[in-house]
Simulated scan of single mutants.
Amino acid sequence: MDRTAILRWLHSALAKPANRAKRRIIRFQQHSDYKRFLHEWSGLNTSPASQNAIRHLPAIAAFSLLLSDEELAPRLHESIWIEDDPLVTVHGTVHKPAARERGIPWGVGQIRAPQAWSTTTGHRIKVGVIDTGVDFSHPDLKQSLARGINLLNRGSLPHDDNGHGTHIAGTIAAANQLHGMIGVAPRSTIYPVKAFDQNGSAFVSDIILGIDWCVRNRMDIINMSFGMKTRSKSLLSAVTNAYNAGIIIIASSGNDGKRKSIDYPARYSQTISVAATNRLRRVALFSNRGTYVDIFAPGDKILSAWLRGKYNEMSGTSMATSHVSGAVALLLAHRPGLSPAEIKSILRRSMTPLRGTKTPRQTGELDVMRMLQAADR
């Protein structure tokens, strides 16, 4: 590999104005080439602005930077791959303020989580929630949060400036039964990984950094309540790294009402893909569905925690995904050491048939008690 040519090309690209530039991910085909490149790049006398313009992604031997179409380097493609670093959005739909939530939300009850709490509460299970952060002051979450990381501002706690991440965390692990709400796995621990901004958007490269953080900090579960339409080889590499590390990755199918297609990363086989149901155990109208979906869970008009200690009602496959993350936390606390493949198999064997579907055996809704029974057989 001609690293000198790559270094020259990078210098040229970074020296030009960023107008009409798009964020791209540059991946090395050989990890050893990436390591040598990093060493040489760090030794160059480049300006701090040039150094900061590159976002390093060591887990997949890559980096991300702004690059115009004119600056793409076809002559270098034999040793590197170049793909877009697109924006990804969270999977929540319209939300509205709700009255103070007390006790057990309907979705937590529908999946029969409370009946399992005499056996398992998710104690010591670490759930990485790659999202918009979390409201650290929320009374229902205070007992359930670890520090996590803010990938957008490394010096700060991952405070939520959107609300979506707090809502997800509440469904998974809220623990304030006397005065507030309780989540599916109230003694599990949420590690908020803030990759998404106040608009609920993140670059794929931010998500990759979040996945890598979860792998290095030994999360048991990663909740991914977001998605995009296009396939990303870089994101797949990061997901595969986490899967191979034994982490269970749970991802939302998307909110476009599609019958035969779901979003990425839920579409990757290494994830547990989740679609949404309503109170009637029917597929929610907004939910993507089809053969790529592994399981359904409540996702319509879900009440959970919100910013400034409040509560909101949200709908989306995001909300369904958080129910499944909580359920898997209950399962892992009960049966430590289960692999991602074993957990997916247990979930698929223990589903409750949906109403109003012609293929009840192929797919179904999460049932925590049946899940635990299937794991014990």
Rank of each mutant, 00 (worst) to 15 (best):
R259S: 15
K260C: 00
K260V: 06
S261T: 10
I262C: 01
D263N: 14
D263F: 13
D263E: 14
D263A: 12
Y264V: 08
A266L: 05
R267K: 15
R267T: 03
Y268D: 10
Y268V: 07
Y268Q: 10
Y268E: 13
S269D: 15
Q270P: 02
T271C: 15
S273H: 06
S273E: 07
S273C: 12
A275I: 05
T277P: 00
R279Y: 03
R279H: 09
L280K: 13
L280C: 09
R281F: 06
R282Q: 15
R282C: 12
R282D: 11
V283C: 00
A284I: 08
L285I: 13
F286I: 00
F286A: 01
S287F: 06
S287G: 12
S287Q: 10
N288S: 13
G290K: 04
T291I: 09
T291C: 02
T291L: 13
Y292S: 12
Y292N: 09
V293H: 09
D294G: 01
I295D: 04
I295T: 01
A297T: 06
A297L: 00
P298N: 06
G299S: 10
D300A: 14
K301G: 07
K301C: 08
L303E: 11
L307C: 10
L307P: 06
R308L: 11
R308D: 14
K310I: 00
Y311S: 06
N312Q: 14
N312G: 10
E313V: 13
M314Q: 12
S315W: 00
S315M: 02
S315E: 04
G316N: 09
G316D: 09
T317A: 02
S318T: 07
A320K: 03
S322H: 03
H323R: 07
S325G: 11
